[in-house]
Design a binder for these strands. Structure first.
Lengths: 197, 197
DNA sequence: AGGCTAAACGGACCACGGTCCGCTTCTATT
DNA sequence: AATAGAAGCGGACCGTGGTCCGTTTAGCCT
């Protein structure tokens, strides 16, 4: 008796062909429905129907509604991350650190506003995927703060600088009739104070 | 033919006796259940049953589950606000502004951690009641920043300073094994940079 | 007291997220 | 090609938040 596929710990387990096909179909269906109807009107049953699969399949591939939305969001998010890592300055590398930091904040702010609904749908309890996105931003800001010669607990400082850009914080401000320009200016001010300009 | 209660605009409309009684009963039941079972295990049906009213009554008095939780939270929140406004220093008046500000942050941080579950249940889309609570904090910080002679857009600065204390931000940090002491120290650092120490 | 009206009540009902488990299909092995 | 068994599938089912509307009741007026 031989072990057909002796399961060594840590093996990623390959994906079956039909599973991959379904994952594609689901993601495509979700993306389409989100684009046409808006996030709020997309139910799991609808996505399942549109993708031509059972509901159970949705929940096996993507853990929850939140997980599915996170996967949809990922499409645009990775593109954004790429432009931060290797795009043109001042967002990408090549500009002085302070300029990069400010550009980063502005870009993040705009992104959060435009994708607000989707981000909120993808962020919540747990949210493994969005954890990664947030982590990327923190790492980047921490790095830029370091380049700027800021001392102290850079991780905490990065988190603090990022916090006011959070979707719900920004939405609250917009609800209070605070313009985007003012929010942006306020954040610039905060950053300058933190880096000690 | 006389208008029994001619409805002038802005009249608050008095509350019927049974309505008041039910409101009390619901709030008491909710508070009790939250205390004994924890927020997550309290369903609207359960509260309705415990209070001896129909489910519809719950939703008429308190707009949603979120609204009910906000009402429950209010009990402790108002007490906290009172201690900020008129309690002993350094949280209350009497201490120098910077000390007050730091004390305020620490107190808010602790409160957010201890009541995390309830606050998250009470905060979300809409959340008229929690809007007020957040507003109070912003106003207070804005005031203290003013006393400290900080220039610029104080409202935005206050929001920015408060943002890192938000429940979900703090929980995320705790999930990353960052201790409360470190969070507190990080926040102190942020504040000192903002006020220009 | 009796009657009238608006407010309040309550529980049947609905939609949606999430689970479960018996059935199907893929793939590795011979 | 046949086979075994794991991986995947799907849709009936459940709990919960939220709505709706026929019925009840409090409060005022005579």
């Amino acid at each position: 008796m031989t072990h057909p596929l002796l399961p060594m710990a840590g093996e990623p387990a390959p994906e079956r062909a039909d599973a991959a096909r379904n994952r594609e179909a689901i993601l495509a269906a979700a993306l389409h429905l989100v684009r046409t109807r808006g996030v709020g009107c997309v139910t799991m049953d609808t996505v399942a129907a549109e993708a031509g699969v059972g509901k159970g399949t949705l929940f096996r591939r993507f853990e929850s509604r939140e997980g599915l939305m996170a996967a949809v969001l990922n499409e645009s998010e990775t593109a954004w991350q790429a432009s931060v890592i290797s795009g043109p300055p001042p967002l990408g590398p090549g500009a002085p650190p302070l300029e990069r930091l400010l550009a980063f904040g502005h870009s993040r702010l705009r992104t959060n506003v435009t994708h607000a609904a989707l981000i909120k749908a993808a962020t919540g309890t747990s949210a493994a995927r969005s954890r990664a996105a947030a982590s990327f931003a923190v790492m980047h800001v921490r790095h830029l703060l370091g380049e700027l010669g800021v001392g102290g607990d850079l991780l905490l400082l990065a988190i603090a600088v990022l916090a006011p850009l959070d979707v719900v914080v920004v939405e609250q401000q917009q609800a209070d009739d605070i313009s985007l320009e003012r929010i942006e200016a306020g954040w610039d001010d905060l950053v300058r104070r933190v880096v000690g300009g």
